[in-house]
């Protein structure tokens, strides 16, 4: 990890795959990309087998563009749809056993801080609603109780998408799914409130309707985790297959849900707020200087 790690050794350029050469020449390594530049640089994530129109795939696309330091980041995933794309990115990816992501991330983050005491190494878990709030619930909660310094992102499609449509704790009450024919009997878990109570220092809930805002939230969550403790993002990322959303309507659906139960929500401790405001103020100043010069 680190910039040296991603560079191509002299003389080897012509043997490297074109996509990798493009990544080094026109990619994000060593730069801070503004997410609004999407479509004008080589993205970290490659082609992957997630379904057409999948907004979990979209969220992951924006996630990679938003990374503050991709060359010093490790992503942790698990069984579920997200790993189909997470495993196709030029950022080290670890596959934690289903349910174990937050335990693996805890150990990894601690090891990295011992091995690289004066460097920021970011660890980010991205897993599904089933992986984090059902089967991995204990691991998720305990990583938060222990105040582990990494970011957890739940890509919530409100179903076990990868295994054919079982209900999860995050499915809305009453919803009928292929493998929940009677309709779900219980309420959707309030993950954001749980995260706050369990010790997260930064918490956000977001529907993917605004790439700039997604990127801001991801950046904030990662920066806050470096210094203060666990951070959590609850992202609505629809499964158009299990919820039978025509793909053309996927963004319309995200916009509709944002008006109802996925209203944008952001909470952080006072010290995180102060810290982030200071960083963002400096960034704005730097950007102003650059425009002037």
């Amino acid at each position: 990890m680190g910039l040296e790690y991603v560079k191509i050794s002299p003389g080897f350029e012509k043997y490297m795959p074109r996509d990798y050469v493009d990544l080094v020449k026109f990619g994000q390594f060593g730069k801070e990309i503004d997410v609004m530049q999407l479509g004008q640089f080589k993205e970290l994530v490659e082609e992957h087998p997630m379904c057409a129109g999948c907004y979990m795939a979209y969220f992951i696309r924006v996630f990679y563009a938003a990374l503050p330091k991709p060359e010093d980041t490790i992503v942790l995933g698990t069984a579920g749809c997200a790993r189909l794309a997470l495993s196709q990115a030029a950022v080290p990816f670890i596959y934690g056993n289903y349910g174990d992501t937050n335990a693996v991330a805890s150990g990894l983050k601690r090891a990295l801080s011992i091995r690289f005491p004066d460097k920021d190494k970011d660890v980010v878990v991205i897993a599904g609603d089933g992986g984090l709030m059902d089967i991995g619930f204990g691991m998720t909660m305990h990583s938060w109780f222990r105040r582990e310094k990494f970011t957890t992102i739940m890509v919530d499609n409100e179903v076990y998408g990868n295994t054919g449509g079982q209900e999860s704790g995050m499915s809305p009450k009453g919803i009928q799914l292929k493998m929940a024919p009677k309709g779900k009997q219980f309420d959707k878990i309030n993950a954001v409130e749980l995260a706050q109570v369990a010790g997260c220092v930064y918490v956000a809930r977001i529907s993917p309707t605004n790439p700039k805002r997604i990127a801001k939230v991801i950046r904030r969550a990662i920066l806050a985790a470096r210094k203060f403790g666990p951070t959590f993002i609850h992202a609505y990322t629809s499964c158009n297959i299990e919820y039978s959303i025509p793909t053309r309507e996927v963004l319309a659906d995200a916009r509709a849900r944002e008006k109802k139960d996925f209203k944008f929500y952001e909470w952080m401790t006072d010290e995180v707020k102060e810290y982030l405001e200071e960083i963002e103020r400096k960034e704005k100043e730097k950007a102003k200087q650059e425009v002037k010069s």
Binding site: G39, E43, Y58, R61, V250
Partner: peptide, 23 residues
Amino acid sequence: CKQCVLFCPEPNCLNYKQSDHTA
């Protein structure tokens, strides 16, 4: 404009040519 580029789920699928202002 560039809006479609910002909402396509696939990486480097919809791209933008700054010189011609076109997706």
